Simulated assay, not measured.
Amino acid sequence: MKILLIGEYSRLHNSLKEGLQKLGHDVTILGFKDGFKNYPVDFPLEKKWDSGFLKKIKLALLVFTGFDITSNLTYRQFWKNKNHFNHFDIVQLINENSFFCDYTHEKKILDFLFKHNKKVFLLSAGDDYPYVKYNFEHPENPSIIQPYLAGKIADKDFSNVLKFRTKPFEKLHHYIYENIQGVIATDLDYHITMQNHLKYLGLIPSPMNLDKFPKSELEIIDKIVIFHGINRESYFKKGNDYFKKALEIIKQKYGAKVEILTSENLPYDKFINLYDRAHILLDQLYGHDQGSNGLEGMAKGKVVFTNASKLFEKHYNLSEKVAINGLPDVDYLVNELSLLIDNPAEIIAIGKRARAFIEKEHDYIKIAEKFVAIWQKTNA
Protein backbone atom coordinates (compact mmCIF):
# COMPACT_ATOMS: atom_id res chain seq x y z
CA MET A 1 0.00 0.00 0.00
CA LYS A 2 0.95 3.64 -0.44
CA ILE A 3 0.77 5.29 3.00
CA LEU A 4 1.07 8.92 4.15
CA LEU A 5 1.75 9.48 7.86
CA ILE A 6 1.12 13.07 8.95
CA GLY A 7 2.81 14.53 12.01
CA GLU A 8 5.45 13.26 14.42
CA TYR A 9 5.38 12.85 18.21
CA SER A 10 8.33 11.26 19.96
CA ARG A 11 9.27 9.14 16.95
CA LEU A 12 5.93 7.30 16.85
CA HIS A 13 5.40 7.68 13.10
CA ASN A 14 9.05 7.04 12.30
CA SER A 15 8.94 3.70 14.12
CA LEU A 16 5.65 2.82 12.45
CA LYS A 17 7.10 3.75 9.06
CA GLU A 18 10.06 1.43 9.62
CA GLY A 19 7.74 -1.42 10.53
CA LEU A 20 5.51 -0.80 7.52
CA GLN A 21 8.53 -0.70 5.21
CA LYS A 22 9.63 -4.09 6.56
CA LEU A 23 6.22 -5.36 5.43
CA GLY A 24 6.82 -3.96 1.93
CA HIS A 25 4.70 -0.80 2.02
CA ASP A 26 5.58 2.58 0.49
CA VAL A 27 5.54 5.13 3.35
CA THR A 28 5.98 8.92 3.48
CA ILE A 29 6.00 11.21 6.53
CA LEU A 30 4.80 14.80 6.28
CA GLY A 31 5.01 17.19 9.21
CA PHE A 32 7.08 19.08 11.74
CA LYS A 33 10.14 17.53 13.39
CA ASP A 34 8.69 17.75 16.93
CA GLY A 35 10.60 20.84 17.94
CA PHE A 36 14.12 20.49 19.34
CA LYS A 37 13.82 16.68 19.11
CA ASN A 38 14.43 17.01 15.36
CA TYR A 39 13.02 13.70 14.14
CA PRO A 40 13.49 12.82 10.45
CA VAL A 41 10.57 13.76 8.17
CA ASP A 42 10.32 13.16 4.40
CA PHE A 43 8.44 16.43 3.78
CA PRO A 44 9.35 18.74 6.68
CA LEU A 45 7.15 21.69 7.57
CA GLU A 46 8.59 24.70 9.35
CA LYS A 47 6.76 26.84 11.90
CA LYS A 48 7.46 30.39 10.76
CA TRP A 49 7.04 33.71 12.59
CA ASP A 50 6.93 31.67 15.80
CA SER A 51 9.78 33.16 17.83
CA GLY A 52 11.53 36.43 18.60
CA PHE A 53 10.49 39.75 17.06
CA LEU A 54 8.47 38.16 14.25
CA LYS A 55 6.31 36.36 16.81
CA LYS A 56 5.51 39.68 18.48
CA ILE A 57 4.40 41.08 15.11
CA LYS A 58 2.36 37.94 14.48
CA LEU A 59 0.57 38.22 17.82
CA ALA A 60 -0.20 41.91 17.28
CA LEU A 61 -1.59 41.11 13.83
CA LEU A 62 -3.68 38.31 15.32
CA VAL A 63 -5.13 40.60 18.01
CA PHE A 64 -6.02 43.44 15.64
CA THR A 65 -7.11 41.48 12.54
CA GLY A 66 -7.72 37.88 13.62
CA PHE A 67 -5.26 36.73 10.93
CA ASP A 68 -2.71 34.06 11.93
CA ILE A 69 0.36 34.49 9.73
CA THR A 70 2.02 31.28 11.02
CA SER A 71 -1.01 29.19 10.04
CA ASN A 72 -1.13 30.89 6.65
CA LEU A 73 2.55 30.17 6.00
CA THR A 74 2.14 26.51 7.04
CA TYR A 75 -0.82 26.20 4.67
CA ARG A 76 1.25 27.73 1.85
CA GLN A 77 4.08 25.24 2.50
CA PHE A 78 1.57 22.40 2.22
CA TRP A 79 -0.13 23.81 -0.87
CA LYS A 80 3.16 24.31 -2.67
CA ASN A 81 3.81 20.56 -2.43
CA LYS A 82 0.19 19.35 -2.54
CA ASN A 83 0.78 17.09 -5.53
CA HIS A 84 2.95 14.91 -3.30
CA PHE A 85 0.07 14.33 -0.86
CA ASN A 86 -2.64 12.74 -3.02
CA HIS A 87 -3.58 9.28 -4.32
CA PHE A 88 -2.57 7.48 -1.13
CA ASP A 89 -4.34 4.28 -0.04
CA ILE A 90 -3.99 5.32 3.61
CA VAL A 91 -3.46 8.69 5.29
CA GLN A 92 -3.01 8.79 9.05
CA LEU A 93 -3.18 12.01 11.10
CA ILE A 94 -1.23 11.96 14.35
CA ASN A 95 -3.59 14.46 15.98
CA GLU A 96 -6.72 16.56 15.48
CA ASN A 97 -4.39 19.52 14.97
CA SER A 98 -1.50 17.83 13.11
CA PHE A 99 -0.52 21.03 11.29
CA PHE A 100 -0.78 23.32 14.36
CA CYS A 101 -2.91 25.74 12.32
CA ASP A 102 -5.99 27.72 13.29
CA TYR A 103 -9.37 26.26 12.34
CA THR A 104 -9.58 27.92 8.92
CA HIS A 105 -6.18 26.86 7.61
CA GLU A 106 -6.23 23.40 9.22
CA LYS A 107 -9.61 22.70 7.59
CA LYS A 108 -8.31 23.82 4.17
CA ILE A 109 -5.45 21.34 4.38
CA LEU A 110 -7.70 18.56 5.62
CA ASP A 111 -10.23 19.26 2.87
CA PHE A 112 -7.56 18.49 0.29
CA LEU A 113 -6.43 15.32 2.07
CA PHE A 114 -9.98 13.98 2.48
CA LYS A 115 -10.86 14.66 -1.16
CA HIS A 116 -7.71 13.29 -2.80
CA ASN A 117 -6.96 10.09 -0.84
CA LYS A 118 -8.79 6.79 -0.31
CA LYS A 119 -8.92 6.39 3.48
CA VAL A 120 -7.99 8.75 6.30
CA PHE A 121 -7.47 7.61 9.90
CA LEU A 122 -6.75 9.56 13.07
CA LEU A 123 -4.54 8.69 16.02
CA SER A 124 -5.44 9.60 19.57
CA ALA A 125 -1.84 9.96 20.70
CA GLY A 126 -1.73 13.29 22.48
CA ASP A 127 -3.89 16.19 23.58
CA ASP A 128 -7.10 16.36 21.56
CA TYR A 129 -10.75 17.30 22.07
CA PRO A 130 -11.96 13.99 23.68
CA TYR A 131 -8.88 13.65 25.91
CA VAL A 132 -9.00 17.21 27.20
CA LYS A 133 -12.79 17.18 27.65
CA TYR A 134 -12.74 13.88 29.55
CA ASN A 135 -9.96 14.90 31.93
CA PHE A 136 -11.48 18.28 32.79
CA GLU A 137 -14.73 16.43 33.52
CA HIS A 138 -12.85 13.74 35.52
CA PRO A 139 -10.10 15.66 37.39
CA GLU A 140 -9.50 12.61 39.59
CA ASN A 141 -8.12 10.72 36.57
CA PRO A 142 -4.31 11.00 36.47
CA SER A 143 -3.49 13.27 33.53
CA ILE A 144 -1.62 16.45 32.63
CA ILE A 145 -4.77 18.36 33.62
CA GLN A 146 -3.95 17.77 37.29
CA PRO A 147 -0.84 20.00 37.56
CA TYR A 148 -2.72 22.69 35.60
CA LEU A 149 -5.67 22.58 38.01
CA ALA A 150 -3.17 22.72 40.90
CA GLY A 151 -2.04 26.12 39.56
CA LYS A 152 1.43 25.01 38.49
CA ILE A 153 1.00 25.85 34.81
CA ALA A 154 -0.06 29.27 33.49
CA ASP A 155 -2.74 29.50 30.79
CA LYS A 156 -0.23 30.82 28.25
CA ASP A 157 2.00 27.77 28.85
CA PHE A 158 -1.00 25.43 28.55
CA SER A 159 -2.43 26.95 25.39
CA ASN A 160 -1.79 23.83 23.27
CA VAL A 161 -4.10 21.95 25.65
CA LEU A 162 -6.65 24.66 26.37
CA LYS A 163 -7.25 25.33 22.66
CA PHE A 164 -9.19 22.06 22.53
CA ARG A 165 -11.77 23.61 24.88
CA THR A 166 -12.54 26.41 22.41
CA LYS A 167 -15.42 26.44 19.91
CA PRO A 168 -13.21 26.45 16.77
CA PHE A 169 -11.37 23.30 17.86
CA GLU A 170 -14.58 21.61 18.95
CA LYS A 171 -15.88 22.39 15.47
CA LEU A 172 -12.67 21.05 13.91
CA HIS A 173 -13.00 17.86 15.96
CA HIS A 174 -16.51 17.19 14.64
CA TYR A 175 -15.45 17.98 11.07
CA ILE A 176 -12.56 15.49 11.26
CA TYR A 177 -14.74 12.76 12.75
CA GLU A 178 -17.28 13.22 9.97
CA ASN A 179 -14.60 12.50 7.37
CA ILE A 180 -12.22 9.91 8.83
CA GLN A 181 -12.71 6.14 8.61
CA GLY A 182 -11.86 5.76 12.28
CA VAL A 183 -9.62 6.67 15.24
CA ILE A 184 -6.96 4.51 16.91
CA ALA A 185 -5.58 5.09 20.43
CA THR A 186 -1.88 4.49 21.08
CA ASP A 187 -2.06 3.92 24.82
CA LEU A 188 -4.51 3.45 27.69
CA ASP A 189 -4.70 7.16 28.56
CA TYR A 190 -6.38 7.87 25.22
CA HIS A 191 -8.26 4.55 25.12
CA ILE A 192 -10.12 5.56 28.30
CA THR A 193 -11.43 8.75 26.69
CA MET A 194 -12.49 7.06 23.42
CA GLN A 195 -14.49 4.05 24.66
CA ASN A 196 -18.01 3.74 23.25
CA HIS A 197 -17.34 6.23 20.43
CA LEU A 198 -18.77 4.99 17.11
CA LYS A 199 -15.57 5.85 15.21
CA TYR A 200 -13.23 4.24 17.74
CA LEU A 201 -11.33 1.27 16.28
CA GLY A 202 -9.42 0.26 19.41
CA LEU A 203 -5.99 0.46 21.04
CA ILE A 204 -2.77 -0.34 19.21
CA PRO A 205 0.32 0.24 21.40
CA SER A 206 3.05 2.57 20.18
CA PRO A 207 5.63 0.81 17.98
CA MET A 208 9.24 0.40 19.07
CA ASN A 209 11.96 -0.42 16.53
CA LEU A 210 13.92 -2.92 18.56
CA ASP A 211 16.61 -3.08 15.85
CA LYS A 212 17.71 0.31 17.20
CA PHE A 213 17.84 -1.02 20.76
CA PRO A 214 20.09 -4.10 20.86
CA LYS A 215 19.31 -6.37 23.79
CA SER A 216 21.63 -5.87 26.75
CA GLU A 217 21.45 -6.50 30.47
CA LEU A 218 22.16 -3.97 33.19
CA GLU A 219 25.42 -4.30 35.06
CA ILE A 220 25.95 -2.67 38.44
CA ILE A 221 29.60 -2.32 39.37
CA ASP A 222 29.70 0.35 42.06
CA LYS A 223 27.25 3.26 41.77
CA ILE A 224 23.56 3.20 40.91
CA VAL A 225 23.13 5.67 38.02
CA ILE A 226 19.84 7.60 37.81
CA PHE A 227 18.94 9.63 34.72
CA HIS A 228 16.52 12.58 34.74
CA GLY A 229 15.81 14.06 31.30
CA ILE A 230 13.93 17.37 31.31
CA ASN A 231 11.92 19.06 28.57
CA ARG A 232 11.36 22.60 29.87
CA GLU A 233 8.11 23.01 27.91
CA SER A 234 6.57 20.05 29.74
CA TYR A 235 8.36 20.47 33.08
CA PHE A 236 5.26 20.36 35.28
CA LYS A 237 3.23 18.17 32.91
CA LYS A 238 5.75 15.36 33.42
CA GLY A 239 6.04 15.90 37.17
CA ASN A 240 9.68 16.99 37.04
CA ASP A 241 9.22 19.15 40.14
CA TYR A 242 8.51 15.99 42.18
CA PHE A 243 11.40 14.10 40.60
CA LYS A 244 13.79 16.98 41.35
CA LYS A 245 12.83 17.10 45.04
CA ALA A 246 13.05 13.33 45.37
CA LEU A 247 16.52 13.28 43.79
CA GLU A 248 17.76 15.94 46.21
CA ILE A 249 16.75 13.68 49.11
CA ILE A 250 18.25 10.59 47.47
CA LYS A 251 21.55 12.35 46.85
CA GLN A 252 21.72 13.43 50.48
CA LYS A 253 20.69 9.98 51.71
CA TYR A 254 23.03 7.86 49.58
CA GLY A 255 25.87 10.22 48.63
CA ALA A 256 28.58 8.51 46.57
CA LYS A 257 26.48 5.35 46.26
CA VAL A 258 24.44 7.03 43.49
CA GLU A 259 25.24 9.12 40.43
CA ILE A 260 22.56 11.44 39.06
CA LEU A 261 22.62 12.48 35.39
CA THR A 262 20.42 15.39 34.26
CA SER A 263 19.80 16.78 30.77
CA GLU A 264 17.59 19.52 29.35
CA ASN A 265 16.04 19.95 25.88
CA LEU A 266 18.47 17.72 24.01
CA PRO A 267 17.87 16.63 20.38
CA TYR A 268 16.62 13.05 20.21
CA ASP A 269 19.85 11.49 18.88
CA LYS A 270 21.87 12.94 21.78
CA PHE A 271 19.22 12.30 24.42
CA ILE A 272 18.73 8.61 23.59
CA ASN A 273 22.45 7.89 24.00
CA LEU A 274 23.08 10.02 27.09
CA TYR A 275 21.37 7.65 29.49
CA ASP A 276 23.06 4.45 28.26
CA ARG A 277 25.01 4.25 31.56
CA ALA A 278 21.88 4.69 33.66
CA HIS A 279 20.16 1.94 35.60
CA ILE A 280 17.09 4.00 36.49
CA LEU A 281 15.25 6.47 34.25
CA LEU A 282 12.80 9.08 35.58
CA ASP A 283 10.17 9.73 32.92
CA GLN A 284 6.70 10.98 33.95
CA LEU A 285 4.02 10.85 36.64
CA TYR A 286 0.54 11.72 35.38
CA GLY A 287 -1.23 8.89 33.58
CA HIS A 288 -1.80 5.15 33.20
CA ASP A 289 0.51 4.11 30.35
CA GLN A 290 4.03 4.90 29.16
CA GLY A 291 5.05 7.57 26.68
CA SER A 292 7.79 7.08 24.09
CA ASN A 293 10.71 8.04 26.37
CA GLY A 294 9.54 5.50 28.92
CA LEU A 295 9.15 2.80 26.30
CA GLU A 296 12.62 3.46 24.92
CA GLY A 297 14.11 3.25 28.40
CA MET A 298 12.33 -0.07 28.94
CA ALA A 299 13.59 -1.31 25.55
CA LYS A 300 17.10 -0.57 26.80
CA GLY A 301 16.39 -2.67 29.89
CA LYS A 302 16.24 0.26 32.31
CA VAL A 303 14.03 0.55 35.38
CA VAL A 304 11.70 3.38 34.37
CA PHE A 305 9.60 5.54 36.69
CA THR A 306 6.66 6.25 34.43
CA ASN A 307 2.91 5.69 34.06
CA ALA A 308 2.29 2.03 34.93
CA SER A 309 -0.94 2.05 36.91
CA LYS A 310 -3.12 -0.83 38.12
CA LEU A 311 -5.20 -0.34 34.99
CA PHE A 312 -2.05 -0.84 32.89
CA GLU A 313 -1.11 -3.99 34.81
CA LYS A 314 -4.64 -5.38 34.39
CA HIS A 315 -4.80 -4.60 30.65
CA TYR A 316 -1.55 -6.43 29.96
CA ASN A 317 -2.21 -9.15 32.56
CA LEU A 318 1.03 -8.46 34.43
CA SER A 319 1.86 -10.24 37.68
CA GLU A 320 5.29 -8.61 38.15
CA LYS A 321 6.51 -5.05 37.67
CA VAL A 322 7.92 -4.08 34.29
CA ALA A 323 8.20 -0.43 35.35
CA ILE A 324 7.66 1.64 38.49
CA ASN A 325 4.36 3.50 38.55
CA GLY A 326 5.23 7.14 39.15
CA LEU A 327 3.01 9.20 41.43
CA PRO A 328 3.16 12.95 42.26
CA ASP A 329 4.32 12.24 45.80
CA VAL A 330 7.91 12.97 46.87
CA ASP A 331 7.88 10.54 49.81
CA TYR A 332 6.56 7.77 47.58
CA LEU A 333 9.25 8.42 44.94
CA VAL A 334 12.01 8.49 47.55
CA ASN A 335 10.75 5.21 49.04
CA GLU A 336 10.58 3.47 45.63
CA LEU A 337 14.04 4.72 44.65
CA SER A 338 15.45 3.64 48.03
CA LEU A 339 14.05 0.13 47.65
CA LEU A 340 15.85 -0.21 44.33
CA ILE A 341 19.14 1.28 45.52
CA ASP A 342 19.12 -1.02 48.57
CA ASN A 343 18.25 -4.04 46.38
CA PRO A 344 20.34 -3.91 43.18
CA ALA A 345 19.18 -7.41 42.18
CA GLU A 346 15.66 -6.01 41.81
CA ILE A 347 16.96 -3.40 39.36
CA ILE A 348 18.42 -6.18 37.21
CA ALA A 349 15.19 -8.23 37.42
CA ILE A 350 12.85 -5.36 36.52
CA GLY A 351 15.16 -4.33 33.67
CA LYS A 352 14.95 -7.83 32.15
CA ARG A 353 11.16 -7.86 32.45
CA ALA A 354 10.94 -4.38 30.92
CA ARG A 355 12.80 -5.50 27.81
CA ALA A 356 10.70 -8.67 27.52
CA PHE A 357 7.51 -6.61 27.80
CA ILE A 358 8.55 -4.29 24.96
CA GLU A 359 9.47 -7.27 22.77
CA LYS A 360 6.06 -8.83 23.38
CA GLU A 361 3.74 -5.80 23.22
CA HIS A 362 5.51 -3.03 21.24
CA ASP A 363 7.63 -4.66 18.52
CA TYR A 364 7.41 -2.35 15.51
CA ILE A 365 6.75 -5.06 12.93
CA LYS A 366 3.96 -6.68 15.00
CA ILE A 367 2.45 -3.22 15.59
CA ALA A 368 2.67 -2.35 11.88
CA GLU A 369 0.79 -5.57 11.10
CA LYS A 370 -1.98 -4.52 13.52
CA PHE A 371 -2.32 -1.11 11.84
CA VAL A 372 -2.47 -2.69 8.38
CA ALA A 373 -5.16 -5.15 9.53
CA ILE A 374 -7.37 -2.34 10.90
CA TRP A 375 -6.82 -0.08 7.89
CA GLN A 376 -7.70 -2.85 5.45
CA LYS A 377 -10.83 -4.11 7.21
CA THR A 378 -12.32 -0.62 7.72
CA ASN A 379 -14.53 0.43 4.82
CA ALA A 380 -13.92 3.69 2.97
Rank of each mutant, 00 (worst) to 15 (best):
L198N: 09
K199F: 08
K199T: 08
K199Y: 14
Y200P: 13
L201G: 04
L201V: 11
G202T: 10
I204V: 14
P205F: 01
P205E: 13
P205Y: 01
S206Y: 05
P207Y: 04
M208T: 14
N209G: 05
N209L: 09
L210T: 15
D211K: 14
D211V: 07
K212T: 10
P214T: 09
P214H: 13
L218T: 11
L218I: 13
E219S: 15
I220P: 03
I221D: 14
D222R: 14
K223F: 05
I224W: 01
V225C: 00
V225H: 00
I226G: 00
F227K: 03
F227E: 01
H228E: 02
H228T: 01
H228M: 03
G229P: 02
G229M: 01
I230M: 05
I230V: 15
N231K: 12
N231H: 12
R232A: 04
R232C: 01
R232K: 07
E233P: 01
E233T: 06
S234I: 07
S234G: 02
Y235T: 08
F236W: 04
K238I: 02
G239N: 01
G239R: 00
N240D: 12
D241S: 08
Y242P: 00
Y242M: 03
F243S: 03
K244F: 10
K245G: 01
K245H: 05
K245T: 05
L247W: 02
E248W: 03
E248S: 10
I250L: 02
K251R: 11
K251D: 08
K251A: 07
Q252M: 06
K253F: 01
K253V: 00
Y254W: 14
G255R: 02
K257M: 07
K257Q: 15
K257T: 09
E259T: 14
E259D: 14
I260D: 02
L261H: 11
L266G: 06
L266V: 09
L266R: 11
P267E: 09
P267I: 08
D269W: 05
K270H: 10
F271T: 04
F271P: 01
N273S: 13
N273V: 10
N273C: 11
N273L: 13
L274Q: 11
Y275N: 13
R277P: 14
H279E: 11
I280S: 02
I280V: 12
I280E: 00
L281C: 13
